[in-house]
């Protein structure tokens, strides 16, 4: 991990309320892996005070992108940044997605903003020889559906579910997952999931029932981000673990939901 100045290259709204920011920051990008995260100091004041965590949406040698939703003071600050502005970046933090060796079949399960860190994972997965990757994206409505085009562009079969039926099937992403696994019984895919707690819990349940390996990326309120304050604890079968240091990616069977 390193604390480094990043330079905003671009920062645009991809849909109302959702932004994609590209940052030049080779020191952090060089070490970053899909599933790890970074924190950004949002301004110099005392409100917001704590750094805000974001997943690496895309990673290159010279920088990274974050995909974020404007929901409060910190993300409002970020959404106002212009190309050329400098930001204080700390990363990469935590452990990324561990891709099991020898596996060829993968399912990416994204709910809401959970899609953000899964794009860089998808790019790694498609580079594996003969890999079959399927992405299932769930969102509240078409207005909050992100990355569908990106997944399709890199050649991934992409299924969509929305709560209100404005795009794809009108159901939960985990319903689509169930149907997919039911139809492809001979497949033993590894599932990578990121999204709201209830979705991850359902994904953990489905994968347990079918005996599939499932990795989930979790969120908790983060203060230090480096494992010092013990603030982002979650309950696991081996006691409390830290989202920032032991995660954010965990094997779903480890988590006590």
């Amino acid at each position: 991990m390193i604390q480094s100045a990043g330079k905003v290259i671009s920062n645009r709204s991809v849909k109302p309320g959702y932004y994609l920011m590209a940052v030049k920051c080779p020191a952090v990008a060089k070490k970053a892996k899909p599933g790890q995260f970074l924190t950004i100091r949002c301004g110099n004041g005392t409100t917001p005070l704590l750094r805000r965590p974001f997943g690496f949406h895309r990673i290159s040698a010279s920088g990274f992108e974050i995909l974020y939703e404007r929901i409060g003071k910190g993300t409002a600050f970020l959404s106002g940044l212009k190309p050329g502005d400098e930001i204080d970046v700390l990363g990469p933090l935590g452990n990324g997605f561990a891709i099991p060796r020898g596996k060829k079949d993968f399912v990416i399960l994204a709910g809401g903003m959970g899609v953000a860190p899964l794009a860089s994972l998808a790019e790694s997965l498609v580079r594996i020889k003969k890999a079959e990757v399927c992405a299932i994206i769930g969102a509240r409505s078409e207005k909050a559906l992100l990355c569908e085009g990106h997944f399709k562009n890199i050649g991934i079969r992409t299924l969509v579910a929305t709560d209100d039926g404005t795009c794809g099937k009108k159901c939960f992403a985990t319903d689509v997952l169930n149907d997919f696994l039911e139809a492809k019984q001979r497949l033993r895919p590894v599932i990578f999931a990121c999204g709201p707690g209830p979705m991850l819990k359902a994904a953990a349940h489905i994968s347990k029932k079918r005996g599939l390996e499932c990795h989930v990326s979790l969120e908790e309120n983060i203060a230090c981000g480096v494992g010092a304050c013990l603030g982002c604890a979650i309950k696991t079968r081996s006691g409390y673990k830290l989202v920032c240091k032991d995660g954010p990616v965990f094997n779903a069977k480890e988590i006590i939901w």
């Binding site: 005070l49 309120n221 983060i222 409390y240």
Partner: peptide, 15 residues
């Protein structure tokens, strides 16, 4: 073992 989560939250100019 410590307390159940959530364990931290930001408040105005503090936590």
């Amino acid at each position: 073992e410590g307390n159940p989560p959530p364990r931290v939250v930001e408040t105005p100019s503090g936590m």
